[in-house]
Design a protein around this nucleic acid. Structure first.
Lengths: 234, 234
DNA sequence: GCAAAAGTGTTCGGATTACACCCATGT
DNA sequence: ACATGGGTGTAATCCGAACACTTTTGC
C-alpha cells in the first residue's frame, strides 16, 4: 500500500458565516460553543470535516445540525491555516458564508437550537480567528454584491423595492437615491412586479416584486453595477 | 491535555498555479512530479504543509524549493477537499495562484530545476484535480484583472503600452482599441513614462513605462475598469 | 518615398446622476 | 386636507466607444 510518509496530518474544520436581514438591519448567526476549549464562548457555526465528506457537504451538514437550515446559499470564502489559530491542536478551517432570509427561519431557530441572531453592529468577541473570518466575509459580500445579485438570498420571496434598497443601504452603510435605485434594479429585468402591495410600512403601500428565477440564474454571474460610485463605497 | 477525540486528520497540501507572460503569450509553470503516485506526470507546483507553517509560508517555500523563485505575488484561490481527489490518502489542497515576469526567471529555471513553462493553449492533462485548479485560476485572474491592476506582476520593470495591451488581450482573448486602451491605462496615473524607447518591435519605437510604486500600492484594491464591455468578456 | 507601428484628438451615444413633480391613502 | 412615503419623468453631465489623423523611422 502506497503512503505519504513523514507528513503531518491536521484536523480540518468548516466554519460558516451566516448572515441575515430582518427588514431593518443585518444580523449574524452565532452559537454558544458546546465543547472545550472555549466552551460557552460565542462562535460561528463550525465543525469538523468527516472522512468521506467534501467541504461543501460538511458545511451543509454542520449548518443543518446546528440550526436546522437546509438548502441555503453557501459559498467558500477562504481557508485559514495559521499554526496557532487553534490552541489545542493543529486545525485548519475552510470558511463559508451564507445568506438567508431571517423571517423564514427566526422562530424555528430560537426554539430548537442554541443559535442566535446578533446585530452586526453588536457582534461580541468570537473564538479563535472567527472575528477575522467575519470581517473578510463582510468585505467579500460588499465586493460581490456590487456586481452580482447575491443579496436576493437575504430577502423573502416577495419583497418591495424600498425593502431591497434598505438592504443595500445596510450593506454599504450609505443612502441611495430612491428613484435611480429603482430604475437601475428594474432595468436588470430580474424582478417581476406582482399585484399585491405591502401596506405595513406606508400608507400608499409598495408593490411586491419577486425574482424572475430564470433571469436570475442567467445573470447570476453577470455584472450589474447596482451601487453608485462603487470605488468610493467599497 | 485537551484533545479533540474521534476526529479525522488529513494531509494538507498547497498547490500553486504559476502563470507568466513572455511578451507574446501566457504560459503556465509545470513540473514533473517526483514521487508516487503519478510520478513523472505533469503537476502544478505543490507540496505538503508542515506542522509549523501557515498556508502562504508553505506556498512560498514550495515555490522556492521547486523553482528558486522568491518574493512573488501569491494569492489564495480556493480550497479543494473532495474525498477522492487524491487516491492514496485523504488530502486536501489549498490552491494559490502566482503571476510572474517570465523573462526574469526563464534561464535560471531551465538549468537548475525540472520546472517548465508550457503555453496556456497547450496544457497537458495534469494529476488529480490540477486541471480544475488551473481553470478556476484563469477565471479568477480574468475576473480580478478587469478591476484591479494585478497584471503588472507579469511584466518586467520597464514595459511599453503595446506590451501591456498584448498582455490584456492574451488574458481576455479579444482585441482592444489601442487609443482607448492607452488613455484608460494612463488615466489611472499608475504609470510613469521614461525617456527610453523599445526599438525591438517597431521602427518608431514605443516608450517604456514603469509602475509608480506608491500609486500602485494605493490603488491595488481600487476599481479601475480597464476592460471594455466587461460583462461580454468575462 | 513608403510601409508599419506609435502617439494624440474629436465626436457621438448611452449611462449615471441630480433633481421635481405626481399619486395613493390613513389620519 | 394634509402628511407620508411610493412611483415616474427629465435635463445636465460624464464616461466609454468608435473613429481619423499625424509622427517617427527603417527599409
Amino acid at each position: 500500500m502506497l503512503r505519504y510518509d513523514d507528513q503531518v496530518k491536521m484536523l480540518v474544520a468548516v466554519d460558516c458565516v451566516v448572515m441575515g436581514f430582518d427588514g431593518q438591519e443585518l444580523k449574524l448567526l452565532l452559537i454558544k460553543r458546546g465543547f472545550e476549549p472555549e466552551r460557552n464562548k460565542w462562535s460561528l457555526m463550525g465543525g469538523f470535516v468527516r472522512s468521506d465528506e467534501s467541504f461543501s457537504r460538511a458545511a451543509n451538514r454542520i449548518l443543518e445540525e446546528l440550526t436546522g437550515l437546509t438548502g441555503i446559499y453557501l459559498e467558500q470564502l477562504h481557508a485559514y491555516g495559521n499554526p496557532d489559530r487553534d490552541p489545542v491542536d493543529r486545525t485548519i478551517s475552510v470558511a463559508y458564508f451564507a445568506l438567508i432570509d431571517i423571517t423564514q427561519y427566526e422562530k424555528q431557530l430560537s426554539n430548537t437550537y442554541d443559535a442566535e441572531w446578533v446585530s452586526l453592529s453588536k457582534v461580541p468577541s468570537l473564538i479563535f480567528d472567527h472575528n477575522r473570518m467575519l470581517r473578510q466575509a463582510r468585505k467579500e459580500i460588499k465586493y460581490k454584491a456590487a456586481n452580482h445579485p447575491i443579496l436576493f438570498e437575504l430577502l423573502p420571496e416577495k419583497f418591495t423595492l424600498p425593502q431591497l434598497q434598505m438592504l443595500y443601504e445596510a450593506i454599504y452603510e450609505v443612502e441611495f437615491d430612491r428613484r435611480n435605485f429603482s430604475r437601475k434594479v428594474l432595468s436588470t429585468r430580474l424582478l417581476v412586479k406582482t399585484d399585491e402591495k405591502d401596506k405595513e410600512s406606508s400608507k400608499k403601500g409598495a408593490f411586491y416584486y419577486r425574482l424572475d428565477k430564470e433571469e436570475y440564474d442567467n445573470k447570476f454571474r453577470a455584472f450589474l453595477n447596482i451601487i453608485p460610485n462603487p470605488d468610493k463605497v467599497i
